[in-house]
C-alpha cells in the first residue's frame, strides 16, 4: 500500500468517525426530545449523558484527526492526486444524495406537522443530522462500493 492509499484510508476513517459520532451525539439529544414530546419513559439520564458525551468527544477527536490528515496531505503535496476525478465524482454524488435526504426529511416533517405541532429545535436538529450525516455516509459507501477486484 503506498502513501496515497494510506492517506485515502486515513481520510475515510476520519469521515466515518465524524459521521458516526455526530449521529450518536445529536441522536441522543433527538431521542431525549422525542421521549419528552411523546411523554414516553426514556432510558436513564446517566446512560444518555454518557452516550452524548462519548459522541461529542468522538466528534472532536475526528475533527482533530482530520486536521492531522490535512497536514499530512499538505506535507506530501498529494492533494491533487487524492482529490482526483473519482473523488470529485463521489463528492458531487454525495452532495446530491444529501440534498435528496434533506428534501425527504423536510417533506416528512411537513407531513408530521399536519398531524401534530412539532417543536422547532428538534425539527431543526433532524435536518442538521440528515444534512451532515447523509452526504458523509453516502461518500463512504461509494468509496467502499468502488473497491472492486484489484
Amino acid at each position: 500500500m503506498d502513501d496515497i492509499d494510506r492517506l485515502v484510508r486515513s481520510r475515510d476513517r476520519c469521515l466515518a468517525l465524524a459521521a458516526t459520532t455526530f449521529l450518536v451525539w445529536q441522536g441522543v439529544s433527538l431521542y431525549r426530545d422525542a421521549m419528552q414530546w411523546l411523554a414516553a419513559p426514556a432510558l436513564p439520564e446517566g446512560v444518555l449523558t454518557v452516550a452524548e458525551l462519548a459522541g461529542a468527544l468522538g466528534w472532536v477527536a475526528a475533527t482533530v484527526l482530520f486536521l492531522v490528515y490535512a497536514g499530512r496531505v499538505t506535507k506530501t503535496r498529494s492533494q491533487a492526486v487524492i482529490e482526483d476525478e473519482l473523488f470529485q465524482h463521489h463528492k458531487r454524488k454525495a452532495i446530491q444524495i444529501g440534498y435528496g435526504g434533506l428534501m425527504l426529511a423536510i417533506a416528512a416533517l411537513f407531513a408530521v406537522a399536519q398531524l401534530a405541532q412539532l417543536p422547532a429545535e428538534p425539527s431543526l436538529r433532524v435536518l442538521v443530522v440528515v444534512g451532515v450525516c447523509t452526504p458523509l455516509f453516502a461518500f463512504l459507501a461509494m468509496g467502499r462500493a468502488s473497491e472492486g477486484e484489484a
Binding site: D2, D5, V8, D84, H89, G148, E149, A150
Partner: peptide, 30 residues
Amino acid sequence: TQAQLAERVGVTRKTINTVENRVFVPSAIL
C-alpha cells in the same frame, strides 16, 4: 501495477481500479 499507472497519470489507485472494472468512466483528459 495499478499504483504505478496511477502515479504516472496523477490519480489514486482506486480510480484506476474503477476504470478497469468499468465502474467509473474517466474524463477525456484522463
